[in-house]
Every structure is written in structure tokens, then in C-alpha cells.
Design a protein around this nucleic acid. Sequence first.
DNA 1: ATTATATACTGGTATAGACCATGTTGCAAG
DNA 2: CTTGCAACATGGTCTATACCAGTATATAAT
Lengths: 233, 233
Amino acid sequence: MGSPVYIQIHNEIKKAIEAGKWSVGDRIPSERELAVQFHVSRMTLRQAIQTLVEEGILERFVGSGTFVANQKVQEKMSGVTGFTDLMLAQGKQPSSKTISYHVMSPSLSEIEKLKLKDDAQVLRMERVRYGDDVPISFEVATIPLEIVEGLSKQEVSESLYRTLETKKGVMPGHAKQMVSASTASERIAEYLDIKRGDAILRLRQISYLQDGRPFEYVRTQYVGERFEFVLEK
Amino acid sequence: MGSPVYIQIHNEIKKAIEAGKWSVGDRIPSERELAVQFHVSRMTLRQAIQTLVEEGILERFVGSGTFVANQKVQEKMSGVTGFTDLMLAQGKQPSSKTISYHVMSPSLSEIEKLKLKDDAQVLRMERVRYGDDVPISFEVATIPLEIVEGLSKQEVSESLYRTLETKKGVMPGHAKQMVSASTASERIAEYLDIKRGDAILRLRQISYLQDGRPFEYVRTQYVGERFEFVLEK
DNA sequence: ATTATATACTGGTATAGACCATGTTGCAAG
DNA sequence: CTTGCAACATGGTCTATACCAGTATATAAT
């Protein structure tokens, strides 16, 4: 396992809570107890708890203990969740067509956004996304090769987020999104079944793992007429 | 005196930065050096640095050092704060021209979004917003009349958020935003000094007070070429 | 039974060391 | 002068321990 011990413990505790070992309001064992259970020092255990507190999953009270907080599930999905869940949440059947799928040397922009080493290779995918068989977006996704090593094309294409959690034990953290507007080029218009010059909502998203490493850079062009981005803040 | 040592150190470093001892981009002494200077262990010193990093005042890079960050005031503002602060945060001089300013009966859409009673009146403003004298957006803002009762036109136009806090003691809470893309109509293109058909980023925003009452409904059309919406999640 | 008090337990702070992976730098080899 | 590499510096992680200030609980005094 590559990740630090406290991240591993963080993940184990999080899973235990999700699995129902403790419910909202329950007190979890004390730091000293957990430190023994996980065979680490209390300071390390505290670091794991700290990250869970920062995520709002746990609450601490001196003298009383550490408790499971009442999760506010809300908007945090908006950025970090993928297209698939987004469509399903709106009752639409998601599908996609892969236009290209190549390993290549990254562009300067990709090197910068993904903080790549000069000699790093990336996987670049172009896809058209559909909701109920209507084209919704054209996207170009770039992923450092080291992230997807050992994963099949299907695993990467279908649901990268879920695959990363399951197979690699790494969890997406935050994401940075830049939204702007433009108009469709001839090529994109063809893919999206619209006319050249029609309105396009552009979304550039850099997704980061919990340790801060960027793992995906996606540039998406949404059909303006068919897509709306909802945010709560 | 009562506060923990790491908070005291936090304050001292923060003051030193504000006093100009280090500027944005400067590297501050290493953790080991500072630990000696402040007569504390490195772990304690790290805790002080940690709080400053969380506040966005410092940035850390392994192998390189710890640096004074260029304050990104940005994102949490993005929704609930107004245009004025948004521009100022990006170092641009905000200004605006009011196109219209009328009290009227609300449209059906406005009644729904602002949860108005049937006989309620609203204030509707149309404005063009500029950053450094370049047109950035055209917006239509609708506010229930009861919210702005007793406020001058200037107070409403200039910075509604600040005025509400100061004069009425109510604080904006969350906001819901819907983002989409379209192209400019003839009228809007003229206001924004672009061509008909140019890309427009549309933002519809409903802002709520902390008690959950909606107090503002704004529809903004941003010039696609001149505006980018940055989000972090 | 109620109230006071002592005790045990909790998370919060702090220490002094250690090792690691990565970034920087200066020196040696070409 | 450039290149490659070794030495060094830096933040990141981790240990084992200690004491503190709050909270909860069992115990003793009323």
C-alpha cells in the first residue's frame, strides 16, 4: 500500500461507518483504544480522526469522546461525481460513445494541470455522452498513466471514480472547475447533432485525490440547450 | 496569554506577514529553523503552520519550503457574494450601469422562485456590469419589495449584500445557482459590446437568507469570452 | 435520596527524536 | 559549458511519552 498509514486508517473507519458499524450520534472508541487496535501511536490515530472531522464525518468533544456526525450529503457530489451518476440522478439513461482512446505524451497544458513530470505519459479519451440517447456533451479526459495502470479499458471508461475506490483504494477528494461559454465548432457540432455556432457550455475540471495529487483533467463541452449545471452553495 | 503556544505562534507569523516581513511568493524559514526561533518542538511549529495553510495564507511544498500564498479570496464567495466583491478579488475595478429600476408585479416565474404571495410587489433591476470598464455581464435582479423597504436606490444598487447586513441585520445564507449556455440576442449583444450569436454564459441564482427565505432572484448573462466561473469542491 | 467530592477517562497540547520521498544545489565528469 | 549525480535541505509521516483541561461516573458524606 502506497498511502500513509493515517489515510488507510481514515478509509477503514469511514468504511466501518458506512457499513453501519456505528450510526449517527454513536460514540466511537477513544483515541487511545483505536490507536491500540490499529497498532499505531495515538498521534497517528489522531491524524486519521482529524481528516474525518474535517470531512464532517466525525465530531469531537473533550472529555466526552468522538461521535459520528449527521452527514450532510448535499452538493459535494456536484463536482466530483461523474456523468453517469449525474444522469441517473435526473432519471435519464446514460450512455456514451468513445471517439478515441490513446496513450500519448501530454500537452503543455496537461503537464501543468496534472502536475506531471516531463517524461510522464497520459491516457487521453474523447467521448460523446448521451442522456436517453440524446447527445449531451463531448468530453476530452486526460489521466496520468500511472493512475490507470493495471486497469482495463472498460474499467476506465465506465466509472473511473468507482474503479479507483475499489481497485486502488484511493478516494477522489476535491475538484476545481472552471466554467465558461463558447460556440460549437464544425466538428463538435457534428458529434453533438447541433449546428456550428450553437451555444456550448464549457467545463474544465481538475480532480484531485485526497492527498492533493491531481488524477484527472477533463474538458467538457455541453450542448447549451440540453444541459444545466445546478449548484448550491 | 491563555491560548495554546501554536496559536500564539500562528498569530506572530501572521502579523509578520501582514507587517511585510515576507511578501507573496517569499519563502519563509524552514520548520526546523522556526522551531528553534520560537523555542518549540518541530511538531508544535508545524501545527502553527498548518493553521496558516488552512487559512490559505501559506503554501507548503515538500523539498522546496513554505511560501506566502497569494490570497485566493475566490470560491466560497462565488455564490453568495455579489459581483462587486468578485471583481475586486480579481483585481478588477467593478462598475455598473443601471438600465432600468422599477417596482412592479412579479412574473409567474418570479413568484415561484421567490415564494411570493399573490399580491406581493417586487423591485426589478436591469444592469450592465463592467470590470475595468469592459462589459462583463447583463443581469436582471428581482427582489421582494418587503426586503428593500426603507433602503435607497443607491443602497440597493451598490452592494445589496452589505446593506442588508448593516441596515437590516439579516445575513445571506446559501444560494442555488443554475448555469447554462446560450447565444446573445441583438439587444443583449449591444449592451455587452459583442455580436449577436456570440457565446453567453447564463447564470440564474436564487439567494436565501439564513432563515431560508429567498430574497433575490438574479438572471445573469456573461460574455463567454470575458468570464470564467471558478468553483472548488 | 441527594449532594459533594474524588477518580478515571476524554480529547488537546507539547516534546524530542526518527526515517522517508522529493526538491534543490553544488561539484565532478564529460 | 553542459550534464549527471551525490549531498543536502525540506516538508510529510510516525513513534512513545507526558501533562493539561474538560467531562462523566463512581464513591462518600450528608
